[in-house]
């Protein structure tokens, strides 16, 4: 499935895996704006995204998670450092094969659910029959079949987010970046969507980077979890969960599950307090 030229990791790494994307010394500083000093939002950050892994990022609010995603997708240029995807540098251009689901609702209000989902396929010139097949599948997969002719204004926030996920999935990206895609969903639906996401990930062997607030969710879904510090965001640690590839939400019943969540929380408690303190000090 993975085209391009994913490199083999340097000799000496514990496991031989392919690197799908690599960040090296990446920082992002937002320039000063009227009445605002510059904001050092991210980094320096260096890490490798392994091909086919499920990687989650957790961190306190405002620590630069969305900024990290923008830089990785080529939507924002890093202030320093380099980004590579499939061996080729990314510099303010979105490479082919990357799909993004944004934190905000990005459904097009002037298109029906179907047309929203088909948007990218039409632009890419995929033929009508194939396009219809993929759209129907994705719409059904996201539980939107009864609403395929509806406009986003007729949907709830969570349903609109599902439209955006479907629109990304039909493109069959090799790297999927998800910025709190389940933020607007209730806990039960969240768990089910997580299971579906895992199934999809197994079937497509795509690489997934998920940003989330929920520690349990990160724990459950991920092979590795990057824990970010308060702004400017840096990885405090990257936790390997070691869960089997074939897993679902029942994983939470395992005895060692709670240990990972506690470890994440012990990192984040201090950071979240610091992030809050930044806010009150700034006031």
């Amino acid at each position: 499935m993975i085209a391009g030229a994913p490199r083999l990791a340097a000799v000496g790494d514990e496991a031989a895996y392919k690197i799908h994307a690599r960040l090296e010394g990446v920082t992002r500083v937002y320039p000063p704006r009227a009445g605002h000093a510059e904001v050092h939002a991210l980094g320096p950050i260096s890490f490798d995204l392994r091909a086919g892994e499920f990687f989650s990022v957790v961190g306190p609010s405002g620590c630069g998670k969305s900024t990290l995603l923008d830089v990785l997708a080529g939507l924002a240029v890093p202030s320093a450092g380099t980004v590579e995807f499939e061996g080729k540098p990314v510099h303010g251009e979105v490479p082919d094969g990357v799909g993004v689901v944004f934190q905000e609702d990005a459904s097009f209000p002037w298109l029906t659910v179907e047309d929203n989902v088909a948007f990218g396929l039409r632009r890419a010139g995929v033929d009508a029959a194939e396009s219809k097949r993929r759209v129907d599948f994705a719409v059904a997969f996201m539980g939107l079949r009864d609403f395929s002719r509806a406009y986003p204004s007729q949907l709830s926030g969570g349903m609109r987010q599902r439209v955006c996920i479907a629109r990304t999935l039909v493109m069959q990206p090799r790297l999927i970046l998800l910025d709190e895609p389940f933020g607007a969903l209730d806990q039960q639906t969240r768990l089910l969507m997580g299971d579906e996401l895992l199934r999809l990930w197994r079937e497509t062997s795509a690489t997934v980077l998920l940003i989330t607030h929920a520690l349990d969710e990160a724990n459950l879904l991920s092979d590795r979890i990057g824990v970010m510090s308060a702004r400017p965001g840096r990885f405090l640690d990257i936790v390997e969960t070691g869960w089997p590839r074939d897993r679902d939400s029942r994983l939470a019943e395992r005895a060692d599950f709670g240990a990972v969540t506690s470890r994440l929380w012990s990192y984040l408690r201090g950071e979240s307090l610091r992030a809050l303190g930044q806010g009150t000090a700034a006031r």
Binding site: G74, L75, V94, D96, V100, A106, F108, G120, R123
Partner: peptide, 18 residues
Amino acid sequence: VPRVLLKTARIHRLSLIE
């Protein structure tokens, strides 16, 4: 125009005219 829609356009690698 919400910024996230413009980002979506870039993710789909649209040309300027598109």
